[in-house]
């Protein structure tokens, strides 16, 4: 089950080597994203695309906000 995390927990995960993924569309990612984040838009999250991700590596995803 995915875990909701705060900013401080995100900091810790990233320090430990987690993969950061922005799931917003590519245009929004190009305009502005968090340092180190890759872009896998929600609409592209197919098995083929997700196969690019190491399944054993912790992953943190984000979009614009919680609303």
């Amino acid at each position: 089950m995915p875990t909701d995390i705060s900013l401080s927990t995100l900091d810790r995960l990233l320090a430990d080597g987690a993969l950061l993924i922005e799931v917003l569309p590519a245009g929004e990612y190009e305009e502005e994203h968090l340092p180190g984040a890759i872009n896998l838009p929600l609409k592209t999250l197919t098995a083929e695309r997700v196969a690019e991700v190491d399944p054993e590596c912790p992953v943190a995803v984000y979009c614009w906000d919680a609303l």
Binding site: E32, V61, A66
Partner: peptide, 26 residues
């Protein structure tokens, strides 16, 4: 949106998925 993405990643085999719910805005 990130919640749906998190569930989809888990469904496709990623073992440890975390959702930074406050997001880019925060």
């Amino acid at each position: 949106m990130s919640q749906r993405a998190a569930w989809q990643l888990e469904r496709l085999g990623v073992v440890s998925v975390h959702d930074f719910v406050d997001g880019k805005s925060y």
